[in-house]
């Protein structure tokens, strides 16, 4: 059972998660738009990524405790986590029921975007492995919070405060995992395992953009 305080925090995070997500209209535009030239595609996906970051910042600002952190530490956390959080949210979008019938088109469009398949294949494998976990929305929201509040980001000064904040959300996430997946005691550990996978995307992201530009 969640404590009264944990229930309040979860409600707060969920409200923010549901409010600050990539608008369905934008996602549909990406998927259903007629064939675009590769330049248009580049500009469009860049705009989409920018919007992703803006929405992520709005979500993060409302995470209980975040605003009490030093301003430069806030930037260090967001800068360190934006790519990982973006891939996590993309995985949620990819696996969301509403998009199920469009995922083949989406996959084809991304595969044709000019990004090297060396980068694309692990991305889709990640989306699919996340899909197999059958995560509920609370888990996506809390895992995003855990990703953002990672205490070992570069340039972060007050690691201790961030660690405390992250632990708060990890405890709630563990309870939510047990509640929604009572037959799978490994579920919480598996979610955390996906975070390791996310880190590799973050490392490869700059290379991926460079290869895309070159193409």
């Amino acid at each position: 059972e969640l404590t009264q305080e944990q229930m309040g925090l979860l409600q707060y995070v969920m409200d923010s998660h549901l409010k600050h997500r990539l608008p369905q209209s934008l996602a549909t535009r990406l998927i259903l738009q007629d064939d675009m030239g590769s330049d248009d595609n580049f500009v469009f996906l860049t705009e989409m990524a920018t919007r992703h970051v803006q929405i992520l910042v709005e979500f993060t600002k409302k995470l209980p405790g975040f605003q009490t952190l030093d301003h430069e530490d806030q930037i260090a956390l967001l800068k360190g986590s934006a790519v990982e959080a973006m891939f996590l949210r993309s995985a949620e979008l990819f696996n969301r029921k509403l998009l199920e019938r469009h995922t083949d088109i989406l996959e084809e469009r991304i595969r044709k975007s000019g990004i090297s398949h060396d980068y694309i294949n692990p991305m889709f494998n990640f989306y699919k492995s996340v899909g197999e976990l059958k995560m509920v929305e609370e888990e996506y929201a809390l895992l995003t919070a855990v990703v953002i509040l990672t205490p070992d980001r570069q340039y972060l000064k007050d690691k201790e405060s961030v660690e405390k904040l992250q632990e708060t959300f990890l405890h709630i996430l563990e309870k939510i995992c047990k509640r929604h997946h009572p037959d799978n005691p490994q579920h919480f550990a598996r979610l955390l395992g996906r975070l390791t996978e996310l880190r590799t995307f973050s490392h490869h992201h700059a290379d991926m953009l460079m290869s895309w530009r070159m193409n």
Partner: peptide
């Protein structure tokens, strides 16, 4: 254009402003 902004610029602007609208 957004494509010319770096990640840190986007984050700094978003932290100061409000993109809810």
């Amino acid at each position: 254009p957004a494509s010319n902004l770096g990640l840190e610029d986007i984050i700094r602007k978003a932290l100061m402003g409000n993109f809810d609208d």
